[in-house]
Amino acid sequence: MNFGITGVAGFIGSNLADALLSAGHEVVGIDNLSMGSIRNIEQNLDRSDFKFHQIDVRDLAAMGEAFSNADRIVHLAAYKIPRYGNAIDTLEINSQGSRNVLELCRDGNRRLIMASTSDIYGKNLNLPFSETSDSVLGPTTIPRWSYAVSKLFDEHMAFAYNSSYGVPVTILRFFGSYGPRQHLSWWGGPQSVFIAACINGEAMEIHGDGQQTRSFTYIADLIDGIVRASLYDAEPATVFNLGNAQEVTILELARLVHELCGRSGQANIKMVPYKTLSGNYEDVMRRIPDITRARTVLGFEPKVELREGLHPTIKWQRLAMGLVEAQPA
């Protein structure tokens, strides 16, 4: 089967390309390299069953040409939470990019596998979150909610394309992925910046009091779920949570990273009050998935516990940070 992947040079996209190629599929990937890195896919650039095009998802014509032979498309390219207050890219790129891939899938009714986010559940206090849980978001005056809103819009548009045009769609809501090739900034998640701080002997900055909880899904488990969902055709339009249900506070995560980085003594932690963040930032205090549906329908079962997954992640990040430092100015 021939898969098209948007955001192929990113953390998830590059790992997905590796998995699909290893399973005997062909992959055509696009990325504008604004957040992805060519290093993530360099191992595949000489393969005859892999093609890469530097294309922005807002360029419908170029995408259409690149994905002309794709049997189905996995749409991963997106802009995340505008942590520093700039929401325009998040809203424009996510809505236009998703509309474009849906338009491409109208040609021959190719299935679209669309990445969404656990952030759409927002401040809902009823946990764990199932696929039918309500979205409880903050006011439009707070930019951080623009990411969740953009993904909610994408989901509604995907279901509308199925209803109006018959486009088969599978929506995947990701919960806190981490592992080798994760982005080294906040874009990659708190574990990424905690690891970097520990390696550099700096304080790990925690927003709020650190008692907010998350679930963290090792990349190999997430990729397994994406592949399973990508090959699932029994429902014309469907949605799955993909994540690890192990709940951990951000403070516990920081202390675990400190330990696994080989640091002695107490963890060097700096608490950053929410009021000091721009954009009147609001956090989500708990975010845990109910994966019963993915487990029952897809056979998805995360296997890697957080401590186990952080070992190769830290090892990779040491190497990645060394490569960055070794680059000429």
Results as ranks from 00 to 15, higher is better:
residue 247 E to H: 06
residue 184 L to M: 14
residue 183 H to W: 05
residue 285 M to A: 13
residue 194 F to V: 06
residue 239 V to E: 02
residue 106 R to C: 08
residue 294 A to Y: 10
residue 266 Q to V: 15
residue 96 Q to H: 05
residue 63 M to P: 00
residue 233 D to F: 13
residue 246 Q to V: 12
residue 238 T to W: 06
residue 250 I to R: 09
residue 216 F to N: 08
residue 228 R to Y: 03
residue 187 W to Q: 15
residue 158 A to W: 04
residue 312 P to M: 12
residue 187 W to M: 15
residue 32 N to D: 15
residue 134 D to C: 12
residue 313 T to H: 10
residue 93 I to G: 02
residue 204 M to D: 09
residue 67 F to G: 02
residue 241 N to F: 05
residue 270 K to G: 11
residue 205 E to I: 07
residue 322 G to R: 12
residue 301 E to Q: 13
residue 164 S to M: 14
residue 97 G to C: 03
residue 76 L to N: 05
residue 264 S to M: 11
residue 11 F to E: 06
residue 257 V to W: 07
residue 61 A to S: 15
residue 173 R to L: 09
residue 315 K to H: 13
residue 23 A to Q: 13
residue 125 L to N: 14
residue 316 W to S: 04
residue 185 S to R: 14
residue 269 I to H: 11
residue 280 N to V: 04
residue 264 S to H: 15
residue 11 F to P: 12
residue 163 S to P: 08
residue 224 D to H: 07
residue 82 P to W: 00
residue 81 I to T: 15
residue 71 D to G: 15
residue 38 I to H: 10
residue 99 R to K: 14
residue 292 T to H: 05
residue 59 D to E: 02
residue 231 L to R: 10
residue 105 C to T: 01
residue 31 D to M: 00
residue 136 V to M: 12
residue 264 S to I: 10
residue 71 D to Y: 12
residue 243 G to C: 11
residue 63 M to D: 00
residue 200 N to E: 05
residue 75 H to W: 08
residue 306 L to W: 05
residue 198 C to H: 09
residue 297 V to L: 02
residue 141 T to L: 10
residue 50 F to L: 06
residue 2 N to K: 14
residue 127 L to D: 00
residue 20 L to S: 02
residue 56 D to C: 10
residue 119 D to C: 12
residue 216 F to G: 11
residue 142 I to R: 10
residue 130 S to Y: 02
residue 154 D to F: 03
residue 244 N to A: 06
residue 102 L to G: 01
residue 286 R to Q: 15
residue 254 A to D: 00
residue 222 L to P: 11
residue 85 G to E: 03
residue 55 I to E: 01
